[in-house]
């Protein structure tokens, strides 16, 4: 029983930590620019494949860690290009942004699919920083995942500090709260949105780097699942609320792991939990637990 509880708690924390990173960026972009970026899950997926492709390249033998740097830079740039080429020209129309980012996600998926590694599942375990596990109350705590959870918390805190204390962070919040007024403060809102999308892509990339080496590349379509769950997380936490995204991520994480561990045949439908959350929240509290579009 204690093992089951440990199992539920640890995996819930793990899942929550991953979704906190992914959903935070997703929520940020929505909060600041009202941009529903449906290619966010694809950033996560693509980072994994960028790492894989580089690891498969002889050039990087002995330079495995360089792949991480490159992958994160590339995904950040792709985030930037998404904004400049697709979102910015269309940002007055929500529908257009949704469609065009959906299209991009689909395109990235197809690009990965036709790549030589696109049709199989892959491990990128070479990038695991920590091996092994420690038994706690008869439950094996995997070191790599502890690293992920710690890093996720650190990144969330740094990010909160960045948003609240840094000059760029203040400008980001200003744009989020009143874009026109921010323009009057000499802030180039487009530039701020560009940074925001780049930061969110970077966060998705970091999530991929921290999680996927201990998990696996499940195929080019894996981004959609993460997108849907991030969506559930931000709906739960409140679109644009950063605290909400983090809290929502852990709530979703624990709910899934609870279903997996304690509900008979739960694993068969644990994946429906986020969808159920979306529907329930929209019915009873559409603004989410923490409400508000603006970044506080």
């Amino acid at each position: 029983m204690i093992v089951d509880i440990m199992n539920m708690l640890f995996n819930g924390t793990l899942t929550g930590a991953v979704y906190a990173l992914i959903a935070m960026g997703y929520s940020l972009v929505y909060g600041v620019g009202g941009i529903m970026n449906l290619s966010h899950g694809a950033y996560f997926m693509l980072t994994g494949y960028l790492l894989l492709w580089m690891l498969q390249t002889p050039f990087f033998i002995g330079l495995e860690w360089l792949t991480v740097v490159f992958a994160l830079i590339i995904i950040t740039v792709i985030g930037g290009l998404t904004f400049l080429l697709l979102v910015k020209p269309l940002q007055d129309s929500h529908v257009a942004v949704v469609i065009v980012t959906f299209g991009l996600a689909f395109l990235l998926e197809q690009v990965v699919l036709i790549s030589p590694s696109g049709t199989e599942v892959w491990s990128i375990g070479q990038l695991r920083l920590f091996q092994g596990y420690t038994m706690v109350f008869g439950y094996p705590i995997v070191h790599q995942y502890v690293f992920l959870i710690v890093m996720s918390i650190v990144i969330v805190l740094l990010f909160a500090l960045f948003i609240n204390k840094s000059k760029l962070g203040k400008s980001i919040r200003a744009v989020s709260q009143d874009r026109e007024a921010a323009g009057l403060m000499g802030i180039n809102a487009s530039r701020i949105l560009l940074y925001t999308v780049m930061i969110s892509a970077l966060l998705a990339g970091l999530a991929a780097f921290l999680y996927l080496p201990g998990a696996s590349l499940d195929g080019p379509s894996m981004g959609w699942g993460y997108l849907l769950n991030s969506f559930a997380v931000v709906i739960l936490g409140g679109m644009g609320s950063l605290i909400g995204s983090v809290a929502g991520a852990f709530i979703v994480g624990y709910t899934i792991s609870f279903t997996n561990v304690f509900v008979p045949y739960g694993p068969s439908w644990a994946h429906l939990v986020p969808i159920i959350i979306i529907i329930v929240i929209l019915l009873i509290r559409p603004q989410g637990l923490f409400g508000k579009k603006e970044l506080r």
């Binding site: 000059k167 203040k170 400008s171 919040r173 200003a174 709260q177 009143d178 026109e180 007024a181 921010a182 009057l184 403060m185 000499g186 802030i187 603006e294 970044l295 506080r296």
Partner: peptide, 20 residues
């Protein structure tokens, strides 16, 4: 019009960060 959830000081700070 102001940034509702930034402190008064931060409201001013944002403008002090403009080019001029």
């Amino acid at each position: 019009r102001s940034f509702k959830y930034l402190s008064l000081l931060d409201n001013i700070t944002v403008s002090c960060l403009s080019k001029r």
